[in-house]
């Protein structure tokens, strides 16, 4: 999955990025002036093109696709399992939203695709094996 970290330029703080699913992007606010963009449809260049059309020069784009492994978790027990590791309030996580959290000391970014899930857990690549070991026991 292509992933971009998007940080707004100085003075662009009030701008909010529209969710543009038609363009094959999921754009989630993840911090002050910071967004995370996911796309299964586009490669890095494609995402840059679409984002460039949307926001021009108002933000800096950082391609993080190679740095993160995404695990898609679904099923009725998804939140129960993730809550064994994460203090996140999953009810408060908006649909098509994402939040940074920590699971067993591993910084992860969890995004919610639809109201009933699935949840995508974006894990820093070097931690992937440890995270999967945790997940297997937690499940």
């Amino acid at each position: 999955m292509t992933q971009f970290q998007v940080i707004l330029r100085k003075g662009e703080a009030s701008r909010s990025l529209e969710i543009m699913e038609d363009d094959g992007l999921l754009i989630c606010a993840t911090g002050p002036d910071e967004f995370w963009v996911f796309s299964e449809q586009h490669d890095a260049q494609g995402v840059e093109t679409v984002l460039g059309r949307m926001i021009g020069e108002t933000a800096s784009l950082f391609d993080q696709s190679h740095g993160r492994v995404v695990l898609r978790i679904e099923g009725p027990r998804t939140i129960e399992v993730l809550a064994k590791g994460s203090p996140l309030d999953f009810d408060a996580l908006p649909v098509k939203g994402a939040a940074h959290t920590v699971i067993e000391h591993i910084p992860v970014l969890i995004s919610r695709r639809e109201a009933a899930g699935p949840y995508d857990v974006s894990v820093p690549r070097s931690y992937a094996a440890s995270f999967i070991a945790w997940l297997e026991e937690a499940i």
Binding site: I7, R9, Q64, R68, P124
Partner: peptide
Amino acid sequence: PHLDVQFCTVSETW
């Protein structure tokens, strides 16, 4: 805060 600079860690990416 007035500096127009954006940065992030890419330790995992490379």
